[in-house]
């Protein structure tokens, strides 16, 4: 058991009591943190939500100039079979005209297939196809205009439409995710 002399200051000015306070407070913080973390983390996506992570799409029925919307991770993904004019228009834009500079070549794996997450980078609305000032997409919520490569050209959105990870399984099939 502690004696009075041990409770008083040792040579370097630290008391036994001080050590007990710091140790108790430290353990208390760790214990509280461990108890609180599950209560916070339970709000993150659950295992079954995370499991729905890939989507396969058959492209063979999409004609030139046509778009479809598929669902990937409960988000809409636009798949557009672009016309040669759209491709030419997207590639003719000088990079300095773009708020978020990116070449069309960097945004597609095959020039005729433009595949992107159909969510406006401003506040998450779904833009409308073949509308707006640049012949691409137009977000009706806050007026963002995207071009035929899905790049932001005008309006409050900060970034180009996001390109998801995808791969061509063969000429007519892609896997998103």
């Amino acid at each position: 058991m502690a004696t009075d002399s041990k409770d008083s200051s040792t040579g370097n000015g630290i008391k036994r009591r001080d050590f007990i306070y710091v140790a108790s407070a430290g353990l208390g913080i760790i214990a509280t943190g461990s108890a609180v973390w599950p209560l916070i983390d339970q709000m993150n996506p659950s295992a079954d939500v995370l499991a729905m992570s890939i989507t396969d799409v058959d492209l063979s029925s999409i004609a030139v100039g046509q778009s479809i919307t598929v669902v990937w991770q409960s988000k809409p993904v636009f798949i557009r079979h672009r016309t040669p004019e759209e491709i030419a228009e997207a590639r003719a834009v000088p990079l300095e005209d773009l708020p978020d500079p990116q070449t069309d070549e960097d945004r597609v794996q095959r020039a005729e297939w433009l595949i992107m997450v159909g969510i406006c980078t401003h506040l998450g609305c779904v833009p409308l196809g073949e509308q707006g000032l640049y012949g691409g997409w137009f977000c009706p919520c806050h007026g963002s205009h995207y071009d035929t490569s899905g790049r932001i050209r005008q309006g409050p959105a900060p970034d180009n439409l996001v390109i998801p990870n995808y791969e061509f399984l063969d000429d007519n099939h892609i896997r998103i995710g």
Binding site: I40, M43, N44, P45, S46, V49, Q73, S74, K75, H122, L123, G124, C125, C141
Partner: peptide, 28 residues
């Protein structure tokens, strides 16, 4: 969707916060 996406404007951790608010990859 619009209001929860406000939090995505926060630098660095914005997207993680939004996913945490949603409990998924979109409002669901």
């Amino acid at each position: 969707t619009v209001i929860t996406n406000l939090f995505s404007a926060i630098p660095l951790v914005g997207d993680a916060i939004v996913s945490w608010l949603w409990g998924g990859f979109a409002v669901s």
